[in-house]
Structure formats: C-alpha cells, structure tokens
Write a protein that binds this DNA or RNA. Structure first.
Lengths: 257, 257
DNA sequence: GACCCGATGCTGGCCGGACCAGTATCCCTT
DNA sequence: AAGGGATACTGGTCCGGCCAGCATCGGGTC
C-alpha cells in the first residue's frame, strides 16, 4: 500500500477552502453576502480570531470584501484582473523575471491582442479604440504635456485593444504586465528632453495601429503593436536585452524603423 | 486644491506593506528569516492577533512560510509560478474567462514558448525535452496505460519546452493555464474508449515537435505546438468554441490534420 | 568517549473575552 | 412627512492564556 504525505491543514485554511469551494461550484456568486464574523464562528465552531484570519486571506486573494458596520456582512466579489497584477509585479522585483522577459511577454500578449482585435473588428470596440486614439492626439498637441497623464492614456489605448481581443486572459495579463512595465518607463518619459517628439510619435503609432485593426489587417496589426511597444522601450534597454528581443519583434525592421 | 480620497489602512495592512516593501527593494531576500510573532508584535507595537493576520496574507500571497516550533522564525520564499495558478483557475470558474479563452491563451503562450525554444535550442534544454518525449513514448507502449500518469508526463513535456523558452513569465503563465485546463480534460482521457490511439498520437506529436525545436525550425515548432494542443482538446469543445479558435490556430490545416 | 534521551524554552495555532469606532436602522420627535 | 438621535449591530484591535510541536542542551547510560 502507498501512503500519502500528511497535509497539515490549519483551521483557518479549512474555512478558506470551504468558502473557495462555494465560489468555485457557483453556490456563492458575486454579490452574495456571507454571514458576519460572529455568525461564522458559530457555524465553523472556531474562535473569531480564526475566522478573521480566514477572511483576511480571502480578502487578500480578492474573493471577498467587508466593511465595518455593514449588517449585511462580507460581500463576495466578482473576479478582477487586478489580482494577477500583484504576482506578476512580484515576479519582476524578486528576480523571478528580468526586464527583457517582461517586455518580451508583453510583446507576445499585446501583439496577439491586436491580431485578435483585427479579426473581430467589432464596431463597438473600434469606437472605444478610436476614442483612446483621439485622447492621445489631443494630448500630444497640447501646449504643456503631462507625462503621467500621457502614460495613463497610452495605457488606456492598449487596454481598449485588449478588450477588443475578446480574451479576458490576454486582457488581464496584458494590463498586469503593462502596469509592471510602466513603473519602469514612467521616469524615463519625465526626464525626456525631447518629450514632444516622442509623444507625437507614440500618438501617430497608435493611430496607425488602430487603422490596421479597423481594416482587419491582422498581420499588420500584430506587427504594428509589437513594434510600437518595442520602440517605446528600446532606449531604456541594454544591448544584451535588445539582442534577446530582436528575434521576436522581427516586426521592427519590417516596418522600416 | 484637489483632495485625494482617504484610504483606510488597517494595522495589519501596514505590516504587510512594510514586509512586501522589504522584499521588493531586495532588503529581504529569499531564505531570509523574519523575527517571530512575539518579536514582531513589539517592533510594530501591535497585538499578536494583528501580526498573525499580516502573516496569513503574506503566506497566502506566497511571500513567507512558517512552521510551528522553528526558532529561526518565518522564512521568506522565492517567487514561485504557482501563485499565478490560483487566480487563473478562479478566473475560469467564476466566469472571468471561458474555456475557449483559456485554450486560446494557452495556444498563444505555448506556441510562443515553442518558437523561442526553437530559436535558442540550447543543448541542455533539448536534453530535458527529449527525456520527456522518451517518457511519453515509453508510457504509450506500456500494456496498461494510466491516464493520470500520462497527463502528468504530458504536462512535464510542455513544461520542459516553456523552460527552454527562457522566459519565466511564459513558463509561469503556461503552467498555470495548463493546470487549469487539465482539470477540464483529465476526465475525458479517463473515459476515452480508444485510449491507446489517442495516447500514441499525442506521444508522436510530442516527438515531432521536439524535432522541430532541435532543428531550429521556429515557425514549424510554433505551428506544431499550437496544433498539437488544439487537437488534444478539440473533442471536448462545442461548435461555437471551435469556431472561435480556428482562426488562431490556422496551424491545424497547415499540417494537414 | 560516544550515544541516547528527557527537560526546557522556544515556536506558531487557537481560544475566549473585551473594548472601540464606525454604520444602518428604526423609532421618536418636530 | 421629514428630521434627528438612540440603538444594535458591524468589523478592527487588543489582551492574556493554553496547547502541541520542534531544538537544543545537559545529564545520564553503555
């Protein structure tokens, strides 16, 4: 007979698992309310400290939220892509992944998102993308350019494309890794001497990409997306990092850059 | 003047943030030890219950681990891709993403991983991949086929390719989404009538993919990877799901399947 | 001298009770 | 009918305590 290693299972973990289970099976759905802590300590027959520990990890994993004083009790949350962002950020900061890997991953995700967006090119999605493009152009033509604001809008533009891809996993991973990358690039834009030129070029690139998506140019959209992003970050890369990324975004040369 | 919304920050959250900060800045590195709970409650001047809640969320996010009785205190963990798996699994179960999206995402990730693996084709990585291929073939030729074991080894084969890609983000996302998908496909393989045929075909496909990676056939490796995976799951998809995925894995027809 | 073994002082796990600052509700006042 | 408090809750935090398990070290045995 074969034994299985014993699994230490703390009391609070059992509570977490039971509630996670409830969410997984659909028994608990987003918006549902859990009993208050005092009630839970009775149903699980544990102390309040234990149910609180369970609530803390459920809150940390984005499953529930609670407010003091709310007699309806903790609420079950809908899934949010933000829960992916934390782990991905950690991965970069804790040497789980280098900047080159991060950027490479983003090229893959956002390139694919652009491709899928070009396949679908649904009207509602295109409107969203165009709105984002107009927002970028408007800001680029302004007298004084706020780097942080431009970064936010550029982020929103990519966000719109990912949404148009129709794949929420791409959407979540893209925004997560995008958030991690902007943390690296933000300072660059702030200290940029020729800020106007760079901003204008980014806005133009965005418009060109949007056009490719609109016309259903799948391959072109993918190439434009990857090369746009690569060019945006190229200056802050070391030679080694560039060498690692060139093969992936063969797009760069294809567009004559 | 513009006000910023107040942010309720609980005591335990401050502890979590401080320790997360320490890990982010490199002040705390994997393997380092934190003071025991009784010491922490003094340095943060909070009660033990509060530091315990903080430790629970740090544990839930995979940052630290602790064992009762260990006088060295909680240990800081290295990053592990597994922390991504939880959120991704939740995403599928909580209608954050459909099966089709999940599979599409995997086609992108594992396709790209195969492509990158073919670019590098480092000898050490190839050895790992070949070992996995041999493991599959050996199992496919066995008298009695254990479906669970075959699933595990197939998983290991893809794992080896992702590792060979040199991108730990692809590796992490791939294994996470792979884990989520096998949960769906495992039962299928167990009830499969013509199990032997399917297993043999999968083993052969894996060998062909490995060969393309070895010879540096980048495009071929990517096509083989995506079409292998797609074919593996095709039977459990609905017509709608197939229609959504066909455009992405144009690979299927290219290989004459 | 080498080895075994138990006492001891630590660790985290869990409990019960308590107090506080908020919030929602209901009932009473105007 | 509208306003405004008392009230009964909520979660947030603290305290002090007990327990089981791990490490270490010292005292014993062979």
């Amino acid at each position: 007979m074969d034994f299985t290693p014993v699994r230490r299972v703390n009391a609070y973990e059992q509570i977490v698992e039971q509630i996670e289970q409830g969410v997984a099976t659909g028994e608990l759905r987003a918006g549902d309310r859990l009993p208050g802590e005092r009630r839970l300590m009775e149903t699980f027959s544990v102390s309040r400290a234990t149910v609180r520990e369970a609530m803390r990890v459920l809150h940390a994993t984005g499953l529930v939220d609670s407010r003091p004083g709310d007699p309806r009790g903790p609420v079950v949350l809908p899934f949010s892509p933000e829960v992916l962002e934390g782990p991905l950020l950690r991965m970069t900061r804790q040497e789980g992944a280098s900047r080159a890997e991060l950027l490479q991953f983003r090229l893959v995700v956002d390139g694919q998102a652009a491709l899928l967006a070009a396949i679908h090119h649904r009207e509602a999605d295109l409107d969203q993308i165009d709105a984002a493009v107009r927002g970028l152009a408007e800001l680029a033509d302004a007298e004084e350019i706020d780097p942080a604001e431009f970064g936010t809008r550029l982020q929103g533009f990519h966000e719109a494309i990912r949404r148009a891809s129709g794949n929420r996993l791409l959407e979540a991973c893209g925004s997560a890794v995008g958030g991690a990358l902007t943390e690296l690039a933000q300072r660059r834009l702030e200290t940029e001497v020729n800020r106007g030129l760079r901003v204008h070029r980014s806005a133009d690139d965005a418009a060109a990409l949007a056009e490719r998506i609109r016309t259903g140019d799948t391959a072109g959209a993918q190439l434009a997306a990857t090369s746009n992003i690569y060019r945006y970050y190229r200056d802050i890369l070391t030679d080694d990092e560039r060498a690692a990324l060139e093969p992936m975004s063969g797009a760069v040369s294809d567009l004559g850059l």
